[in-house]
Computed example of a mutant assay.
Amino acid sequence: MQIITLNLNGVRAAAKKGFFEWLAVQSADIVCVQELKAQLPDLSGDMLSPDSYHGYFHCATQKGYSGVGIYCRKQPDNVIEGIGIPEIDAEGRFIQADFGNLSIISLYLPSGSSGEHRQIAKFFFMEKFFPVLKTLMASGREIILCGDWNIAHKEIDLKNWRSNQKNSGFLPEERMWLSNVLDDVGFVDVFRQLNPEPDQYTWWSNRGQAWTKNVGWRIDYQVATPVIAQKARSVSIFKTERFSDHAPLIIDYDHIL
């Protein structure tokens, strides 16, 4: 089972950059996408159900903003949109697809970088989502949460960590929250389980020469319950082509849907 996750930074923009042509020649069973920046009427047929995939989406109510989706070759048994909190669900940040005892979630945490009001919204999301994570862990299901968490967990996860300690995405409170997700709730950062190397990033600022110089952040994750996490066999970040300011995170699991 191969799973790809990618923040598209606009599904229509990514389409123009060749994302769906690239996807057509991948062997992924499931593709989780974030930041659609579109409503369903905005999506072409190729965006709704590309190639041999079924598409499921949770769009934001605000036009051109946020939104998540899941493309899967096999139709899921059940799809859940949102977490039941109106302020969060209006922004289209959570969609879950169930396959037997396995749940795949496409997740998009708020960014707090645009101002204090958005950092407050990010902290609100973190507070309300933590019990959801505990409930998921206690459910007995295998869970893989894929997406843009907008948090670099440790110093190794961004190039300029010293100068970013007071910036959204690397605040002590955010990092501690993610540590609690992993250490206390018990989820596993699957990429780091297999790749402990530095300079492994999934997002680069459009300013300066961040991409060229690999001055990036690792803020896109596949976070899983321990049993399915142990079935991960290979991890990679695809950087040969650029469809977004993020790169696709690809993980292969020894599991059949």
Results as ranks from 00 to 15, higher is better:
118 R>V: 05
118 R>K: 15
123 F>K: 09
124 F>T: 07
127 E>S: 12
128 K>S: 11
128 K>C: 09
129 F>N: 02
130 F>R: 10
130 F>M: 14
133 L>A: 09
134 K>P: 01
134 K>W: 08
137 M>Q: 05
138 A>K: 13
140 G>S: 05
141 R>N: 08
142 E>A: 08
144 I>F: 07
145 L>I: 15
145 L>Q: 04
146 C>D: 01
147 G>Y: 12
147 G>F: 15
149 W>Y: 15
150 N>Y: 09
151 I>V: 15
151 I>G: 01
151 I>E: 01
152 A>T: 04
152 A>V: 08
153 H>M: 11
154 K>H: 08
154 K>N: 05
158 L>A: 04
159 K>H: 12
159 K>W: 08
159 K>L: 11
161 W>H: 15
164 N>D: 03
167 N>E: 06
168 S>D: 09
170 F>P: 04
171 L>R: 04
173 E>A: 15
173 E>W: 06
174 E>G: 06
175 R>M: 08
176 M>R: 13
178 L>H: 05
180 N>G: 02
185 V>T: 03
186 G>T: 02
186 G>W: 14
186 G>M: 05
189 D>Y: 09
190 V>D: 01
190 V>C: 08
191 F>D: 00
191 F>G: 00
193 Q>D: 04
195 N>Y: 10
195 N>P: 02
196 P>L: 12
196 P>R: 11
197 E>A: 14
197 E>F: 14
198 P>N: 04
199 D>A: 13
200 Q>T: 00
201 Y>D: 00
202 T>N: 01
204 W>Y: 04
204 W>M: 10
205 S>D: 01
205 S>Y: 09
206 N>H: 11
207 R>M: 14
207 R>L: 14
207 R>T: 06
208 G>Q: 11
208 G>R: 10
210 A>M: 13
212 T>F: 10
213 K>E: 05
213 K>N: 06
214 N>L: 12
